[in-house]
Nucleic acid binder design. Structure first.
Length: 550
RNA sequence: UGUCCGAUAGUGUAAUGGUAACACUCCAGAUUUUGAUUCUGUCAUUCAAGGUUCGAAUCCUUGUCGGACAACCA
C-alpha cells in the first residue's frame, strides 16, 4: 500500500494494531453472504473491502456461506456467489458454511444453559414480542425465564430430537429485558424448523439465529476483523456478550456504510421481486445492479474494483452517482475495446460521383489507444448507411455533422459534401446524396479540404445486421426507496430498447473475449443470447457526449 | 419521550490540534479523422451556536438534521 494513498478508517485501525504487534500471524477476514440471492454491486464493495484488507495487510479471507435459515437458502445461490467472487478477481483461503459448525454451536448453547445464561421459552412469537417492550419501554421477563438448568437442558435436547413442532419452543439467551438495546432483551438463539437444509439435509430441526451463529463462526475461524454493514452496529454488544460468556476467541466486529447507487435498488428482497414479477429477465438481466447483471452488461472486474476503490469506505450514509460507475467502465474499456463502426438507426448516403459496383477496402485501427492492436479492413462503396441523427435539413448553429451543402469526413474514408436529400411521405429523411473528393482519402489526404465533423458509416451491401440492446437506468427516479408507494411504480419503462443495427463486416468475428467500442456510440459486448444467424450486442455504456445540443 | 451512529464542494472521500484537499460531475478552453480519449483552467466545501486553545473540520457542551434498533430474517 502506497504511503500516498488515503487510508480508510479500517485500514487505519489495522495498521495501528499491526504496529502494536497484534496479529503476528496476520489478519483474517471473511465475506459472509447468505445464499439466498445473487450478489450485487453492494456486495462487491464488501468483497473488495474484506479481501482487500487481507491482501494489503498480509492476511487471508474466508468465503463463508451464512446458511442458518434453510427455508430461504439454496445451492443455486452458493454457486453463483462463488462464480461472482472469482470473477471479481479474488481468492478465498477456504470456503466454509455456518452449517459446518452446527454441532459446535449446539455445544455452545448447552454451555450457556449450564451457566444459567440461556433458557427454553414456550411462549409464542406474539407473546415474546409483546413482552419485549419497545425501544422506549423496557421489556418484561417471560414466565419461562426461571426454569431450572436441568429442565432447560432436557427441553433443549428434546428440541433437537424433534419432539416439538415448529415454533413450539425457542432457546433464548438470558441477558437483560430492560436493556435500552432491544437486541439484548433475551434474544433468540435457536428456533425449531422442521425444514430441509441445502447442506445438512434433515439432520437438524433446530437452527441457530444470526446472532448466535455469526460471531461464534467468526471466533471458530479466528477471524480478527469481522467487517459488516452499519445496521449490525446494535448487534455488536450481543456479539461481544456471547463471545465473552462462551469464553472463546474474541473476534471483533467493525461496521461500515453500505453502498447505495442512485436510479436503482440494492435490497435482495426488492431485486428478487423484480425477477419474480418479470420486470427484468432474470438475476443477470443487464439492467440489474447484480454482479451477474453487470458482467452481462459488459462491465469488467477491473472496472468494478476500481469503482469500489473510488467510492471509499466510511460510516456515513451515502448514495453514489451511477455516473461514477460509468466513468470507471469507460476508463477501462477505452484502453482495451476494439473499435468498429455500427449504425444504429440508418439512412442511406449515396455518393453521386463514386463508381457503381466499386468497393475499396479502407484500413482502420483496431484500437488507437493500443499501437499493437493492428488494423481491420472496412469496405467503402457508393451506397452507405449513416446515422439518422447525423443529418439535419435545418441544422442549429454549431451542428457540424451533415446538412445540405455541408461537408463531413467519413471516418477512415473520404470527405463528402451533401448535394441533396430525399424524404418519405411522412417527412422522414431516407436518403442523402453527396459528392466525394477522391484525393481526401483517409491517411493520404491531399485535398486541402477540412471537415469539422466526422461520421461513422457502413457500406450497405456488406453490412451485417445485428441486434442491439440499448439499456438505460432501471428506475426513473434517483432514489426509489425514498418515494411514496410501491418502488416498482418508479421503474423506467424505457430501460430496454431493442433495435436492429448494421455493422461493418469485421464485427462478424466478434467474441465474448473482447469488448467493442461502436465508434461515436458507446461500448458494447456480445450477449449470450446470440445465435449463429443473429448476433446480439448489449450496450454497456454510451460514450461521453460533449455535444450539448444533442 | 429512549439508546446508538453519523454530518467536510452537486456526489463521494481525505486532512488524525497547525495553509481545507483529491476524484467524479458541471462549466470554459486547447488538441483531435470518434463532439470520444488526452491536456489546461474556472466555479464550489467544514450543519448551528457556545466553550477549551496561541491555534479547532478535528476536543467539550447544547441544539438541528439524517440513519439504525421493537423478524422464530441475515
Amino acid at each position: 500500500m502506497s504511503a500516498e494513498k488515503a487510508h480508510n478508517f479500517l485500514e487505519e485501525i489495522i495498521s495501528e494494531e499491526l504496529k502494536a504487534g497484534k496479529f503476528p500471524e496476520g489478519i483474517i477476514t471473511r465475506f459472509p453472504p447468505e445464499p439466498n440471492g445473487y450478489l450485487h454491486i453492494g456486495h462487491a464493495k464488501s468483497i473488495c473491502l474484506n479481501f482487500g484488507l487481507a491482501k494489503d495487510f498480509g492476511g487471508k479471507t474466508n468465503l463463508r456461506f451464512d446458511d442458518t435459515n434453510p427455508v430461504t437458502e439454496d445451492t443455486e445461490y452458493v454457486e453463483s456467489i462463488m462464480e461472482d467472487v472469482k470473477w471479481l478477481g479474488f481468492e478465498w483461503s477456504q470456503v466454509v458454511y455456518s452449517s459446518d459448525y452446527f454441532e459446535t454451536l449446539y455445544e455452545y448453547a448447552v454451555k450457556l444453559i449450564k451457566k444459567g445464561k440461556a433458557y427454553v421459552d414456550d411462549s409464542s412469537a406474539a407473546e415474546i414480542a409483546a413482552l419485549k417492550g419497545t425501544p422506549t419501554e423496557p421489556g418484561k421477563p417471560s414466565p419461562f425465564r426461571d426454569r431450572t438448568i436441568e429442565e432447560n437442558l432436557d427441553l433443549f435436547e428434546r428440541m433437537r430430537k424433534g419432539e416439538f413442532a415448529d415454533s413450539a419452543k425457542v432457546l433464548r439467551a438470558k441477558v437483560d429485558m430492560a436493556s435500552p438495546n432491544m437486541h439484548m432483551r433475551d434474544p433468540l438463539m435457536y428456533r425449531i424448523k422442521h425444514a430441509h437444509h441445502h447442506r445438512t439435509g434433515n439432520k437438524w430441526c433446530i437452527y441457530p439465529m444470526y446472532d448466535f451463529a455469526h460471531g461464534q463462526c467468526d471466533s471458530i475461524e479466528s477471524i480478527t476483523h469481522s467487517v459488516c454493514t452499519l445496521e449490525f452496529e446494535v448487534h455488536r454488544p450481543l456479539y461481544e456478550w456471547f463471545i465473552h460468556e462462551l469464553e472463546i476467541y474474541p473476534s471483533r466486529q467493525f461496521e461500515f456504510a453500505r453502498l447505495n447507487l442512485n436510479y436503482t435498488v440494492m435490497s435482495k428482497r426488492k431485486l428478487l421481486q423484480l425477477v419474480n414479477e418479470n420486470h427484468v429477465n432474470g438475476w443477470d438481466d443487464p439492467r440489474m445492479p447484480t454482479i451477474s447483471g453487470l458482467r452481462r452488461r459488459g462491465f469488467t472486474p477491473a472496472s468494478i474494483r476500481q469503482f469500489c476503490e473510488k467510492i471509499g469506505v466510511a460510516r456515513r450514509e451515502n448514495i453514489i452517482d451511477f455516473g461514477l460507475l460509468e466513468f470507471c467502465i469507460r476508463e477501462d474499456l477505452n484502453k482495451t475495446a476494439h473499435r468498429v463502426m455500427v449504425v444504429e438507426d440508418p439512412i442511406k448516403l449515396i455518393i453521386n460521383n463514386y463508381p457503381e459496383g466499386m468497393v475499396e477496402m479502407m484500413p482502420g485501427e483496431v484500437n488507437p489507444e493500443d499501437a499493437e492492436s493492428g488494423t481491420r479492413m472496412i469496405p467503402f462503396s457508393k451506397e452507405l448507411l449513416i446515422e439518422r441523427e447525423d443529418f439535419m435539413e435545418n441544422p442549429p448553429k454549431k451542428y457540424f455533422r451533415l446538412f445540405p451543402e455541408g461537408m463531413v469526413r467519413l471516418k477512415h474514408g473520404f470527405i463528402v459534401k451533401c448535394t441533396s436529400f430525399e424524404k418519405d411521405v411522412n417527412g422522414n429523411v431516407t436518403t442523402v446524396y453527396c459528392d466525394y473528393f477522391p484525393e481526401s482519402r483517409s491517411g493520404h489526404d491531399t485535398s486541402g479540404l477540412q471537415a469539422k465533423g466526422v461520421l461513422h458509416w457502413v457500406s450497405a451491401a456488406q453490412a451485417i445486421p445485428v441486434e442491439l440492446r440499448i439499456y438505460d437506468r432501471l428506475f426513473s427516479v434517483e432514489n426509489p426507496n425514498a418515494e411514496e408507494g410501491d418502488f416498482k411504480s418508479y421503474l423506467n419503462n424505457d430501460s430496454l430498447k431493442v433495435v436492429e443495427g448494421f455493422a461493418e463486416p469485421a464485427l462478424a468475428n466478434a467474441s465474448t473475449d473482447h469488448r467493442y467500442q461502436f465508434l461515436r456510440k458507446g461500448y458494447f459486448c456480445l450477449d449470450k443470447d446470440s445465435t449463429a444467424s443473429k448476433m446480439i450486442f448489449n450496450r454497456t455504456v454510451t460514450l461521453k457526449d460533449g455535444w450539448k445540443n444533442g
